[in-house]
Design a protein around this nucleic acid. Structure first.
Lengths: 175, 175
DNA sequence: TCACGTTATGCAATTAATTGCATACTGTCA
DNA sequence: TGACAGTATGCAATTAATTGCATAACGTGA
């Protein structure tokens, strides 16, 4: 259900092809909801069948053809209906935490290495988030307005990554 | 895969019935990896078929019979093998954040209400984590030692909930 | 005694997500 | 010119997760 909401929401911000949507996914919503190109294309087919999105095939000269999707009137209604529902509660699903939870049989060095490598990833992600944050600050006011809500989620992303780093440091000290 | 690791890891800490495991799940690993009783019973059947867990049916006087599972020697090997693999990276999957991301069509009051209700949930969760944390501190040293790794994950849980609260407060100010 | 909550287990159907494979066109660099 | 990266789309199979339904024993309180 959230994927449907995500796709309609992305198309509400601006139309685009499956490929373009996937890229926007990866640099925004994808921080909080992952998908694959297979799943996304499938969802788009489904939405199109239901008449919730319009689809226009666009030929390109230096690239393969693409199908540009946009929100239809019925799609906008469906989006409003989905937004009217309460969001189900947050669920963390983290293989690293499962591993650490179950990690007492493992050598401390092995766990340290694992935590360190994840720390690096989180550091990279934090850097990326900060760049995106600054980029959004430089957008023209009208566009920035439209991206206000995405920006709120990015702020949480930044807080989360900082929390990860602090925790990794604490754990490294204790292992 | 993580469910398999989770079940083997919980059984490594101590044996128990599906029902008991589910309760332990809900108050520990379940903060980072959710499951349902259906999924858990199914996984236990699978693990038993593969000879990774032993199973003993125990009759009880004032309650229905139960099946107590415990880690077999082969199960311990499998657990070690799973722990040797690198954990795949963290994935946040949060319907609330999808909703907020897509929320520009929604009335600010509606979003505020949603954030407020989630804030309450996170506050409750934080309280629970703190109680659990203190309870673990009171365990006899030998047991506490065994639960050292679960405790590390609980620490992250506490940090996450604090982060949520701070972010909710920030967002409430901006909506 | 009947309803309700807790303990205890499971099947079946559906939906969602992952993984593997596949095609095809363009531009760039060696 | 051949390999590789990027753009662009998709099918099929499998695995995981959710949802709905079902059973059954016991204890407690109305």
């Amino acid at each position: 259900m959230s994927l449907k909401l995500a796709v309609l929401g992305l198309l509400d911000l601006e139309p685009g092809s499956g490929y373009a949507l996937l890229q926007r996914f990866r640099s925004s919503l994808g921080f909080f909801w992952q998908t694959t190109h297979q799943q996304l294309y499938k969802e788009l087919h489904g939405l199109h069948e239901q008449g919730l999105v319009d689809c226009e095939t666009v030929s390109q000269e230096s690239r393969p053809d693409k199908k540009v999707y946009s929100l239809s009137a019925r799609g906008a209604d469906e989006l409003d209906a989905l937004l009217a529902k309460a969001a189900s509660p947050t669920k963390i699903r983290d293989p690293l935490l499962v591993k650490i939870f179950c990690g007492r049989r493992l050598q401390p060095e092995a766990l340290r290495a694992e935590v360190e490598s994840h720390r690096l990833e989180h550091e990279k992600t934090l850097q990326l988030y900060r760049v995106l944050y600054e980029q959004m600050g430089k957008l023209p006011a009208a566009v920035r307005q439209r991206y206000h809500h995405p920006l709120l989620t990015l702020k949480l992303g930044i807080r989360f990554e900082e929390t990860w780093l602090a925790w990794c440091d604490e754990v490294m000290g204790e292992l």
